[in-house]
């Protein structure tokens, strides 16, 4: 019998599904971070592939309150359509105290720490309220489950930034969410670290081997719905990477659809430009995400 040849997207997909299934088997308290961006949306799609149309764990979104409104609309639309266990968490205190960059009281980096890192840490541990989408009413209600997540699936890719290229597929974080880059567990032969001490948790990275181009190629192949902000709406700009509106700038581009973006990345204007070049906080961190990532940033 003739065997079909797997192409590189098939291989990436298969590897990611394997990792997702291992994560699901290994962690009783598992969740997936969904930033609404293209990477974690591909991750969500891969979960539906791995579990045959189902997503058997909660999706967690850290809502900084400064996300572009389209992102929230898109999030809730997909959550309802896919029947997701959709959770969001927020640093309501920092927002109330105006400890944010747009309020003019803290630096960009500190703002990231307050609204993303801290909110994430406390949402994962369950000591701050988690808001769950009621699929019947379409409204968010405080989730009764306050258990800490011990496995957190994240859409980080090795090609994004230097620090991410050092990640394991299953990467331990200690009680304070710290990542000990210098002493990571060995990982080989598709066997991952799935045992962990109480109080610690693991980050799971199924997209580690994907590139930005792969992500767009896969979106095209699978016809995955994405936020319209990624596409030029006629004014000659679009977002390449999505974040909070005060710190994310659109790039000049006339790509109007997925196909245009793939061309642009392969051979066009973006072929050699770093993806996060539109993210202002990276520059403030001395050119790397390392400081933020050590503290638990995704």
């Amino acid at each position: 019998m003739a065997h079909k040849q797997m192409d590189y997207l098939d291989k990436l997909e298969a590897k990611s599904i394997y990792i997702l299934r291992e994560a699901y088997a290994s962690f009783d308290k598992l969740c997936m971070l969904w930033s609404i961006g293209k990477d974690s949306t591909v991750l969500l799609w891969l979960a539906r592939k791995a579990f045959f149309g189902h997503v058997p764990f909660p999706l967690v979104h850290v809502d900084t309150h400064y996300k572009i409104p389209e992102m929230i609309e898109y999030r809730d639309r997909l959550a309802k359509e896919y029947g997701l266990y959709m959770i969001y968490g927020q640093n309501t205190r920092a927002l109330a105290d105006k400890q944010t960059f747009p309020d003019g009281n803290v630096s960009r980096l500190q703002c990231c720490k307050n609204l993303k890192t801290e909110a994430l840490q406390h949402t994962l541990s369950g000591d701050w309220p988690r808001y769950r989408l009621n699929l019947q009413t379409g409204l968010y209600e405080e989730d009764e489950d306050h258990t800490a997540y011990t496995g957190v699936i994240v859409g980080a890719r090795a090609d994004e930034e230097g620090s991410r290229s050092k990640e394991r597929y299953f990467s331990p974080r200690d009680k304070n969410n710290d990542w000990n880059v210098d002493d990571q567990p060995p990982e080989f032969w598709n066997q991952f670290k799935t045992d962990f001490a109480p109080g610690t948790h693991l980050r799971i990275h199924p997209l580690l081997d994907w590139t930005e181009l792969n992500v767009w190629e896969y979106i095209e192949r699978e016809n995955i719905p994405t936020v319209s902000l990624y596409y030029d709406q006629g004014n000659g700009t679009r977002y390449r990477s999505l974040g909070c509106w005060p710190c994310t700038n659109p790039i000049p581009s006339t790509s109007k659809n997925v196909h245009d973006i793939i061309e642009e990345l392969r051979s066009g204007a973006l072929a050699g430009v770093a993806e996060r070049s539109g993210r202002a906080q990276d520059q403030e961190d001395g050119g790397g995400l390392e400081t933020l990532r050590r503290d638990g940033y995704m």
Partner: peptide, 19 residues
């Protein structure tokens, strides 16, 4: 040597991926 502490030590401490 994308990581700061690696530059300071001057040795590759981990597996780094490039394309």
């Amino acid at each position: 040597d994308a990581l700061k502490n690696e530059q300071s030590q001057g040795i590759t401490i981990d597996t780094c991926r490039c394309f």
